[in-house]
């Protein structure tokens, strides 16, 4: 559904994206992770046609975003990192404008708006101006807006940033339902546990290039199902083991405080990139 081939974006001497290639399948949630400055936002901007690549190709469905940007745009809905709504307008008016921008008929906009306001549980406030919405409500509204033209691909740039745990889980539920209804989701997030919970596959980006790609389970298993956290002078270090017996044996040989637990995607991420997501 999304095909990126040898994508490069250069800003003066800095390559934000460096020969990136990846393929996102239909109806999967693809978690796109990377430390700060890895090139995630630039890739998202190219996918959503907000910026041009220096070289390479990007296809959304069968449309090349460079040769046919208007057709490519019709296939995608974008949930931007910022809550970029018109606060002076009502929730419905925000969706109405978006629908018109996607060349929808008013009767279709009304029909879809009723459906998606119900879906994101904002039906009761669709006539209220957006400046009266909470952060979580605004985020759900941006999701409804991105869905109103029924895109094949939903690009979500940190959709739960700044939300409390309850609101975040609500969004997670919505994302799974969107995927189950047939859409493909391209997700970037700072919350690695979110990517692990939601993603069918994960791509880890570093210095503009993909350094690992697989399902969260396989990525974790490749390193080891068991992690040993060791308190070092430079913070926590993690060692991986395939089973608990190996981990216990290792801990008995070291003279530091250590914790044995199940490995997770964040352990893999830190091991691969050498730093935490900021």
């Amino acid at each position: 559904m999304i095909r990126i081939e040898n994508l490069t974006k250069q800003f003066k001497k800095n390559k934000a994206v460096n020969n990136l290639s990846l393929h996102v399948k239909k109806q999967e949630i693809y978690g796109f992770l990377g430390p700060n400055g890895a090139g995630k936002t630039t890739t998202i901007k190219i996918l959503s046609t907000l910026t041009f690549p220096t070289s390479g190709m990007v296809f959304i469905d069968k449309y090349n975003v460079l040769d046919n940007p208007l057709q490519a745009k019709k296939q995608i809905g974008v949930v931007h990192q910022t809550l970029n709504l018109d606060p002076e307008l009502t929730g419905y008016e925000n969706l109405l404008i978006h629908g018109l921008l996607f060349n929808m008929k008013i009767k279709d906009i009304k029909k879809n708006a009723a459906e998606f306001f119900e879906f994101v549980e904002l039906k009761d406030v669709m006539g209220a101006v957006v400046k009266t919405y909470s952060g979580g409500m605004r985020r759900r509204l941006t999701i409804a807006r991105a869905l109103i033209h029924r895109p094949k691909v939903l690009i979500m740039d940190e959709p739960t940033a700044g939300l409390d745990a309850f609101a975040r889980r609500k969004i997670w539920g919505l994302m799974k339902r969107i995927r189950d209804s047939g859409s493909t989701i391209f997700l970037t997030t700072h919350y690695i546990e979110e990517a692990q919970y939601l993603s069918d596959r994960v791509g880890i980006l570093d210095k503009g290039g993909l350094i690992a790609e697989d399902s969260p389970e396989k990525l974790i298993n490749n390193f080891g199902k068991i992690a040993v956290e060791i308190e070092g002078s430079d913070g926590l270090e993690v060692e991986f083991f395939q089973n608990r017996a190996e981990a216990v044996k290792f801990v008995s040989t070291i003279d530091k405080n250590a914790t044995i637990r199940g490995a997770n995607l964040e352990d893999v991420f830190i091991k691969l990139t050498g730093r935490r997501v900021k």
Partner: peptide
């Protein structure tokens, strides 16, 4: 909101 409009076809 300019980004939102630029994302539209």
């Amino acid at each position: 909101t300019f980004d939102e409009i630029q994302s539209a076809p």
